[in-house]
């Protein structure tokens, strides 16, 4: 817990409108996050309450947008417990699997997410689309990462990623593209394996049932 508190205190130095509070032994960060563009200045501001699950820093902190500027609806990616849905699960796992620091989370996950919501409010749609809810969104993630819509192929490739010995970087990629593995599927596989073998095995079981 001491490490988490130290990480939080260090990180919120860059976010002076946030403060750490402790309630009944639980640590939370509350306050405002102004969205500041280097040229255009502050263009929006959100009030948040952030809590840290037991598994933090190996998962994202849970964020509730307390100013309620983001409508609390599933189509705005607010969970029933009012926390924001910040990333598709395998993507979150990939980012946080080895531990995340709070400043990185604020700079690279939360602030961009809030900016995406500001854009959505004005534009009526997210700038780069959105994943479908539930497992369909996870399928979409793997489809996009492996650049294939053939779900059987995706399953077999995921199995290959976790169970097989990967081919050499300079060997021709098994997919038949004629390119070396390092220039073809290596990066895609690395993206996927970052979420952890155990997680992929668990997901594979679920996804196979949906085939």
């Amino acid at each position: 817990m001491y490490k988490v508190i130290k990480d939080i205190d260090q990180s919120i130095l860059s976010y002076p409108l946030l403060k750490r509070v402790e309630e009944k032994g639980y640590v939370r960060v509350v306050g405002e996050i102004p969205l500041i563009h280097s040229e255009k200045g502050e263009f929006d501001r959100y009030e948040v309450s952030i809590r840290f699950p037991q598994s933090y820093p190996k998962c994202f902190p849970k964020v509730i947008e307390t100013s309620e500027k983001i409508p609390r609806k599933d189509f705005r990616h607010v969970n029933p417990d009012l926390t924001l849905c910040l990333a598709v699960e395998p993507e979150e796992k990939a980012i946080a699997n080895n531990g995340i620091n709070f400043k990185y989370f604020l700079d690279k996950v939360l602030v961009p997410h809030l900016a995406r919501e500001t854009f959505r409010e004005i534009n009526g749609a997210y700038p780069d689309g959105e994943y479908t809810h539930g497992n369909s969104g996870i399928w979409e993630f793997y489809e996009s990462a492996l650049e294939s819509t053939d779900r059987k192929l995706i399953i077999s490739e995921l199995e290959e990623i976790i169970y097989s010995k990967w081919q050499g970087r300079n060997e021709l990629c098994k997919c038949g593209s004629g390119r070396k593995f390092k220039r073809c599927h290596l990066d895609k596989w690395n993206t996927i394996i970052k979420s952890g073998r155990d997680y992929i095995i668990e997901k594979l079981d679920q996804l196979k049932k949906e085939l």
């Binding site: 969205l35 599933d74 910040l86 990333a87 690279k108 961009p112 969104g137 993630f141």
Partner: peptide
């Protein structure tokens, strides 16, 4: 600009 400065491009919901 800010939205695209992050590591995640699309939101999702586990519901």
């Amino acid at each position: 600009d800010i939205a695209r400065s992050g590591v995640i491009q699309k939101p999702w919901c586990d519901c």
